[in-house]
């Protein structure tokens, strides 16, 4: 039981009310283990982004249960929820979301600063982690001075700088060409996946399925199958 990172049971979520109501999740059950990279795939509107938003604690679920490392967001204050996210969750976004006026190191240092670390210590840790993702020579560069692949590397460094237990990636390769996307996934696989950490990746990009341990297919607010990466690709 201890190796379960995320456990969702019967999670539902609707947007809007009355006739315009959209049921984004219609009772999702999902388990993600520590040390694994789980990919969520499915057509647009199938509920992938809603599900990772709920798992990441940035969106409230309507019903069901969702525990992240045993923590339930439902019964905690906004402040506690933010604190939990700050300490335990890392984010990698489709459009990187690097603050354009901050250097690479400053962007990477942001989660540490949010957690109350001193600026000098945070920047030092940021430089170390940038070295690990092969961006040690671009620590002072602004995002606009970096290529898409380099920006995503910085974003990955930012997602793992505070050693979170869960990293949530939303379409991490969709803004990148095939080769760069592949390198980014290699990096995520090599550097980020660890015994104590789980990764959940939302993607449409079938070329990166090989990096997943398991793949969950979603459609119309349900998880319709969860299979090993190899089985999934064969099917």
């Amino acid at each position: 039981m201890n190796n379960i990172a995320v456990r969702c049971k019967g999670v539902t979520k609707s947007y809007g009310v009355g006739e315009t109501q959209v049921r984004a999740l219609r009772g999702v059950d999902l388990e993600i283990k520590t040390g694994e990279m789980m990919m969520l795939v499915g057509p647009s509107g199938s509920g992938k982004t809603t599900l990772i938003s709920i798992i990441a604690g940035v969106l409230e679920r309507d019903e069901g249960e969702c525990l992240v490392f045993g923590h339930d967001y439902k019964h905690v204050s906004h402040w506690e929820k933010a604190r939990f996210r700050g300490q335990n969750i890392g984010f990698v976004f489709q459009l990187f979301n690097l603050i354009p006026t901050l250097s690479a190191a400053e962007n990477v240092a942001a989660p540490l600063l949010i957690n109350g670390l001193k600026r000098s210590d945070a920047l030092e840790s940021a430089r170390d982690i940038l070295n690990r993702v092969g961006m040690g020579d671009r620590t002072y560069s602004l995002p606009r001075e970096l290529s898409g692949g380099q920006q995503q590397r910085v974003a990955i460094a930012r997602a793992m700088v505070h050693s979170p237990k869960l990293i949530v990636c939303d379409e991490p390769t969709s803004a990148l060409d095939h080769e760069t996307g592949h390198k980014v996934m290699e990096l995520l696989h090599e550097v980020v996946v660890g015994v104590e950490r789980a990764l959940i990746v939302v993607t449409h990009d079938s070329r990166i399925f090989e990096f997943a341990n398991r793949i969950a297919r979603m459609d119309d607010g349900h998880i319709i199958s969860v299979s090993d990466s190899r089985d999934f690709r064969l099917s």
Binding site: A82, F91, A110, P111, I114
Partner: peptide
């Protein structure tokens, strides 16, 4: 213009007070 970045900081754990 910076709402996306404020949102990013918020997602990363920055509280409203911060």
């Amino acid at each position: 213009d910076n709402l996306r970045y404020f949102g990013t900081l918020k997602a990363m754990g920055a509280s409203d007070g911060m």
